[in-house]
Amino acid sequence: MSDTPKIRLRGLTKAFGSKVVLDGVDLDIRARHSMVILGGSGSGKSVTLKCILGLITPDAGTIEIDGQDVARMSRREREALNDRIGMLFQNGALFDSLPVWENVCFKLLAQRRISRRAARDKAAEVLAQVGLAASVGDLSPAELSGGMQKRVGLARAIAAEPDIIFFDEPTTGLDPIMGAVIDGLIVDCVEKLGATAVSITHDMASARRIGDDAAMIHKGRIVWRGGAANLGETGNAMVDQFARGEREGPIQMELRK
């Protein structure tokens, strides 16, 4: 088996005006493993994810997926790469104007890989994988609770059977039980697909449940890498403070007095 990481980031840098958000991020993500990127608000987690997805262009640094530098890819190659990627957005980002079944099968329909009639059956099948009844497919996203929206978002992310899936704060805004349910679904779906998963979160319980590996980003740099199982007892003062949610420690919140 090749030692090439599925995703390799080197020296990733991004600034918005004078604010440096990413300051040389280096990170390797192993194929068929689940990586959790931890970090506080504004630490650069989401920007890292958006850079990998091609939604934001980094100022410097390289992003390699399967050993290929994405910056050197042609538009067609980038589109082909995107076809292999799934994404669960923090707030679901479901399309309001479409019913749930069309949201779930959006990518398959957009690529003409499936007819509209077949898409309804496929949507019912994928909705069942995330624990939702087929009848949910006819509802509008506005009619769903937060937990159901997350599950539909997950169904949409896995419907095209991607080999890389990104999860942006998958449990934010959910009660602890629903958070655990979503985490369980994520683990099941990723295992079933044999996919590489990258999640960003600041929910420690969620990170331990869904992650094989973990990395912590602080002020635009990766400050720690290790296993996700032992978060809170890593020996790294920053990670342990973050994992335990302690006020005192090396990470100081900038509060105006």
Partner: peptide, 13 residues
Amino acid sequence: VTDQIDALSTLST
């Protein structure tokens, strides 16, 4: 503002 446009990009559209 609800990330739906970014979602389109990630859905090959």
